Amino acid sequence: MSERQNKEIGKRLQAARMDQGLSIDYIQEKTKIQKRYLMAIEAGQMNDLPGDYYVQSFVSQYANVVGLDSHKLLAGELQETNDNGKQSAPVATGPLPSRTTQHKQVVKESEFSRRFGKYAAYLPTIVVVVIVVVVLGTIWGMSHSGNSAQPHLTSSKVSVTDDASSSKKKQSASSKSSSSSSKEKSQKITQVGSSTTEYDLKDGPSDGSSLNIKAGTSNAWVSVSSDGTQSWMGTLQTGAAHTVKVAKGVSKVSISLGNAPQTTITVNGKKFNFNPQNDTTQTKTITLNIKD
């Protein structure tokens, strides 16, 4: 699409949102699309989105929330010229509001949006900083955990007794205990009630779980958050995979998928069937509750 077309689509979506007094945060909550992508769409900066597929997908979801016909909007704006090279008239989606009307609508924006909207440009930097802090914290925690466990292992080796018979009995008991504790329970992932997007993970590894996310025959956009903090986000190329380590102590993991039918997830080496109904919904957010 041309820059003019991108800006026209963005203006129409923004005007529809303002007409209804909706904030950009509300659109984000309803579509699960990141706020910075929604702002890029309204500004007509479609190149900031992961790819052409996501342009149409995100615009369609946005249009549906604000009550516009996404098919007419995209069909009208995407057909720029006809066979004779002349520009085709786009499908009308209603006149844009005047500058005075837009000003009145902006006043209706929520107090939160008016106060913090100016910081939106810093959001990518903040996300990167948070990810770095989480990674460093995880590394430090694993290192500290390993060091604190060492004295315990050493002390268990220096336990001796003068009675040879008693020593043999203790060694036998210790061996049985070690053998029993080494048997890990098999993890279980169960659906929460009738929900198709929320699941419970039980009897997972005690030192944290591992998620392996893989794209199928087309690219897949993925975002992973642990207890509300984003752990990883990116676009997987066709056939590519990425592993996300979930730290010990995390109770809830959210996995947002931009191309769900073409994405597979493996949890701790076992395939996770997050779409038992085999529906074709493109955008989906899966919640995984980690139970002890």
Results as ranks from 00 to 15, higher is better:
residue 249 G to L: 13
residue 59 V to A: 08
residue 278 N to Q: 09
residue 67 G to A: 10
residue 93 T to I: 15
residue 19 D to G: 01
residue 166 S to C: 09
residue 58 F to G: 06
residue 214 K to C: 12
residue 140 W to H: 14
residue 217 T to M: 04
residue 95 P to G: 04
residue 63 A to S: 14
residue 2 S to T: 13
residue 53 Y to G: 06
residue 222 V to N: 03
residue 100 T to C: 00
residue 276 P to R: 01
residue 51 G to A: 07
residue 173 A to H: 11
residue 167 S to C: 09
residue 148 S to L: 13
residue 52 D to A: 09
residue 46 M to G: 00
residue 22 L to Y: 02
residue 79 Q to D: 12
residue 74 L to Q: 03
residue 203 D to G: 04
residue 218 S to P: 01
residue 33 I to E: 02
residue 290 I to D: 00
residue 196 T to H: 09
residue 122 Y to P: 00
residue 144 H to G: 11
residue 140 W to K: 15
residue 140 W to E: 15
residue 161 T to C: 06
residue 39 M to E: 07
residue 189 I to A: 06
residue 126 I to K: 12
residue 285 T to L: 05
residue 291 K to T: 13
residue 93 T to E: 11
residue 8 E to D: 08
residue 75 A to F: 10
residue 171 Q to D: 13
residue 239 G to T: 05
residue 69 D to G: 13
residue 224 V to A: 03
residue 217 T to K: 07
residue 239 G to E: 05
residue 264 T to L: 07
residue 85 G to N: 04
residue 285 T to A: 09
residue 126 I to V: 13
residue 182 S to A: 14
residue 168 K to S: 07
residue 260 A to Q: 01
residue 109 E to D: 15
residue 149 A to G: 14
residue 96 L to K: 00
residue 120 A to C: 10
residue 234 G to T: 05
residue 14 Q to C: 10
residue 192 V to W: 02
residue 51 G to K: 00
residue 35 K to H: 10
residue 264 T to R: 04
residue 247 A to V: 12
residue 95 P to H: 03
residue 130 V to Y: 03
residue 127 V to H: 09
residue 151 P to N: 10
residue 128 V to T: 09
residue 260 A to I: 04
residue 50 P to L: 02
residue 261 P to T: 07
residue 113 S to Y: 02
residue 266 T to M: 11
residue 190 T to I: 13
residue 197 T to G: 04
residue 143 S to A: 15
residue 27 I to F: 02
residue 270 K to C: 02
residue 201 L to A: 05
residue 226 S to W: 00
residue 266 T to I: 14
residue 128 V to S: 07
residue 41 I to S: 03
residue 197 T to H: 02
residue 289 N to P: 06
residue 248 K to C: 08
residue 39 M to P: 02
residue 103 H to E: 05
residue 14 Q to S: 12
residue 243 T to I: 10
residue 72 K to P: 12
residue 46 M to T: 02
residue 96 L to W: 00
residue 255 I to N: 01
residue 168 K to F: 07
residue 60 S to V: 10
residue 111 E to W: 06
residue 212 N to H: 09
residue 222 V to T: 08
residue 45 Q to S: 07
residue 270 K to V: 11
residue 44 G to I: 01
residue 101 T to Q: 04
residue 137 G to H: 13
residue 165 S to F: 06
residue 24 I to Q: 11
residue 143 S to C: 13
residue 278 N to G: 07
residue 11 K to W: 01
residue 115 R to I: 12
residue 161 T to M: 04
residue 147 N to Y: 13
residue 258 G to M: 05
residue 60 S to Y: 09
residue 10 G to A: 03
residue 100 T to I: 05
residue 106 V to D: 07
residue 79 Q to H: 13
residue 23 S to G: 11
